[in-house]
Protein backbone atom coordinates (compact mmCIF):
# COMPACT_ATOMS: atom_id res chain seq x y z
CA UNK A 1 0.00 0.00 0.00
CA UNK A 2 2.78 2.39 0.97
CA UNK A 3 4.56 1.48 -2.22
CA UNK A 4 1.47 2.38 -4.27
CA UNK A 5 1.14 5.78 -2.58
CA UNK A 6 4.83 6.41 -3.13
CA UNK A 7 4.49 5.45 -6.79
CA UNK A 8 1.46 7.72 -7.23
CA UNK A 9 3.28 10.67 -5.66
CA UNK A 10 6.26 10.03 -7.91
CA UNK A 11 4.02 9.89 -10.98
CA UNK A 12 2.29 13.16 -10.06
CA UNK A 13 5.62 14.85 -9.38
CA UNK A 14 6.90 13.63 -12.74
CA UNK A 15 3.91 14.96 -14.64
CA UNK A 16 3.95 18.29 -12.79
CA UNK A 17 7.72 18.45 -13.22
CA UNK A 18 7.54 17.72 -16.93
CA UNK A 19 4.83 20.29 -17.66
CA UNK A 20 6.18 23.08 -15.45
CA UNK A 21 9.75 22.27 -16.44
CA UNK A 22 9.01 22.43 -20.16
CA UNK A 23 7.03 25.66 -19.87
CA UNK A 24 9.66 27.18 -17.60
CA UNK A 25 12.43 26.18 -19.94
CA UNK A 26 10.90 27.66 -23.06
CA UNK A 27 9.96 30.87 -21.21
CA UNK A 28 13.49 31.14 -19.85
CA UNK A 29 14.99 30.61 -23.30
CA UNK A 30 12.73 33.29 -24.78
CA UNK A 31 13.80 35.69 -22.02
CA UNK A 32 17.48 34.80 -22.54
CA UNK A 33 17.25 35.44 -26.29
CA UNK A 34 15.59 38.83 -25.75
CA UNK A 35 18.18 39.95 -23.22
CA UNK A 36 21.04 38.66 -25.33
CA UNK A 37 19.74 40.78 -28.17
CA UNK A 38 19.40 43.82 -25.90
CA UNK A 39 22.92 43.40 -24.54
CA UNK A 40 24.60 42.46 -27.82
CA UNK A 41 26.57 45.74 -27.84
CA UNK A 42 28.50 44.73 -24.73
CA UNK A 43 31.23 42.57 -26.15
CA UNK A 44 32.77 39.70 -24.24
CA UNK A 45 36.12 38.00 -24.76
CA UNK A 46 38.23 35.76 -22.69
CA UNK A 47 41.49 37.23 -23.93
CA UNK A 48 43.39 38.83 -21.10
CA UNK A 49 44.37 42.17 -22.49
CA UNK A 50 42.09 44.81 -23.99
CA UNK A 51 43.28 46.70 -27.08
CA UNK A 52 45.20 49.96 -26.83
CA UNK A 53 42.01 51.98 -27.25
CA UNK A 54 41.17 51.27 -23.57
CA UNK A 55 44.54 52.51 -22.39
CA UNK A 56 44.12 54.29 -19.09
CA UNK A 57 40.32 53.90 -19.01
CA UNK A 58 38.15 52.78 -16.11
CA UNK A 59 37.88 49.07 -15.40
CA UNK A 60 36.22 46.88 -12.77
CA UNK A 61 35.51 43.29 -11.90
CA UNK A 62 32.01 42.24 -12.96
CA UNK A 63 30.31 38.95 -12.29
CA UNK A 64 27.01 37.17 -12.68
CA UNK A 65 25.81 33.98 -11.10
CA UNK A 66 22.81 31.71 -11.00
CA UNK A 67 21.90 28.48 -9.21
CA UNK A 68 19.98 26.14 -11.48
CA UNK A 69 18.12 22.94 -10.85
CA UNK A 70 16.45 20.40 -13.06
CA UNK A 71 12.76 19.51 -12.80
CA UNK A 72 11.74 16.21 -11.26
CA UNK A 73 10.88 14.49 -14.54
CA UNK A 74 14.19 15.38 -16.16
CA UNK A 75 16.05 14.31 -13.03
CA UNK A 76 14.38 10.89 -13.21
CA UNK A 77 15.32 10.54 -16.88
CA UNK A 78 18.86 11.58 -16.11
CA UNK A 79 18.93 8.99 -13.33
CA UNK A 80 17.76 6.27 -15.71
CA UNK A 81 20.13 7.46 -18.41
CA UNK A 82 23.06 7.23 -16.03
CA UNK A 83 22.54 3.46 -15.92
CA UNK A 84 23.03 3.06 -19.66
CA UNK A 85 25.26 6.06 -20.26
CA UNK A 86 25.04 8.47 -23.15
CA UNK A 87 23.99 12.09 -23.44
CA UNK A 88 22.08 13.52 -20.48
CA UNK A 89 19.95 15.91 -22.47
CA UNK A 90 18.16 17.24 -19.39
CA UNK A 91 21.37 18.44 -17.79
CA UNK A 92 22.71 19.84 -21.06
CA UNK A 93 19.78 22.23 -21.29
CA UNK A 94 19.95 23.17 -17.59
CA UNK A 95 23.65 24.03 -17.78
CA UNK A 96 23.29 25.86 -21.09
CA UNK A 97 20.48 28.01 -19.70
CA UNK A 98 22.39 28.69 -16.50
CA UNK A 99 25.61 29.64 -18.21
CA UNK A 100 23.92 32.01 -20.65
CA UNK A 101 21.98 33.52 -17.73
CA UNK A 102 25.20 34.04 -15.75
CA UNK A 103 26.87 35.75 -18.73
CA UNK A 104 23.80 37.97 -19.15
CA UNK A 105 23.90 38.98 -15.48
CA UNK A 106 27.59 39.80 -15.81
CA UNK A 107 26.82 41.89 -18.90
CA UNK A 108 24.03 43.66 -17.02
CA UNK A 109 26.50 44.59 -14.29
CA UNK A 110 28.88 45.87 -16.97
CA UNK A 111 26.04 47.88 -18.51
CA UNK A 112 25.30 49.44 -15.11
CA UNK A 113 28.84 50.79 -14.83
CA UNK A 114 28.71 51.97 -18.43
CA UNK A 115 31.29 49.51 -19.75
CA UNK A 116 31.50 48.58 -23.42
CA UNK A 117 33.42 45.36 -23.15
CA UNK A 118 34.34 42.57 -20.77
CA UNK A 119 37.74 40.94 -21.11
CA UNK A 120 39.18 37.83 -19.52
CA UNK A 121 35.76 36.27 -19.03
CA UNK A 122 35.94 33.12 -16.90
CA UNK A 123 33.12 30.60 -16.57
CA UNK A 124 32.81 28.38 -13.57
CA UNK A 125 30.46 25.52 -12.82
CA UNK A 126 30.13 24.10 -9.34
CA UNK A 127 27.86 21.56 -7.78
CA UNK A 128 26.08 23.13 -4.84
CA UNK A 129 23.52 20.42 -4.17
CA UNK A 130 23.00 21.77 -0.71
CA UNK A 131 20.71 19.14 0.69
CA UNK A 132 22.45 15.92 1.53
CA UNK A 133 23.38 14.15 -1.67
CA UNK A 134 21.09 11.15 -1.35
CA UNK A 135 18.01 13.35 -1.71
CA UNK A 136 19.06 13.62 -5.31
CA UNK A 137 18.61 17.38 -5.59
CA UNK A 138 20.95 18.53 -8.28
CA UNK A 139 21.77 22.23 -8.00
CA UNK A 140 24.50 23.73 -10.09
CA UNK A 141 25.94 27.19 -9.67
CA UNK A 142 27.09 28.86 -12.84
CA UNK A 143 29.35 31.90 -12.47
CA UNK A 144 30.70 34.24 -15.12
CA UNK A 145 33.17 36.95 -14.23
CA UNK A 146 35.59 39.19 -16.03
CA UNK A 147 37.08 42.64 -16.19
CA UNK A 148 34.80 45.25 -17.70
CA UNK A 149 36.31 48.26 -19.44
CA UNK A 150 34.79 51.62 -20.19
CA UNK A 151 35.40 53.44 -23.43
CA UNK A 152 36.98 56.86 -23.47
CA UNK A 153 34.22 59.51 -23.67
CA UNK A 154 35.26 60.65 -27.15
CA UNK A 155 35.20 57.05 -28.47
CA UNK A 156 31.78 56.48 -27.03
CA UNK A 157 30.49 59.56 -28.79
CA UNK A 158 32.01 58.52 -32.11
CA UNK A 159 30.41 55.06 -31.93
CA UNK A 160 27.04 56.53 -31.06
CA UNK A 161 27.25 58.94 -33.97
CA UNK A 162 28.39 56.36 -36.47
Amino acid sequence: MDAIILLAITAVLMVVGYLCGSIGQSMHYRDIRMREFALRDILVFNEKAPPARFSGQEFALVSGSVVMSCDYFRQVIAGLKQIVGGRLVSYEAMLDRGRREAILRMKEEARKMGAAVVFNVRLETSNVSMSSGNKGMTCMELVAYGTAWKLAPQDEASIKNA
Partner: peptide, 9 residues
Protein backbone atom coordinates in the same frame (compact mmCIF):
# COMPACT_ATOMS: atom_id res chain seq x y z
CA UNK B 1 9.58 22.77 -3.90
CA UNK B 2 11.21 24.66 -6.76
CA UNK B 3 13.29 21.64 -7.48
CA UNK B 4 10.19 19.77 -8.63
CA UNK B 5 9.60 22.19 -11.49
CA UNK B 6 13.23 23.04 -12.14
CA UNK B 7 14.75 26.32 -13.23
CA UNK B 8 16.54 28.92 -11.18
CA UNK B 9 16.64 28.54 -7.40
Amino acid sequence: LKNIVGGEL
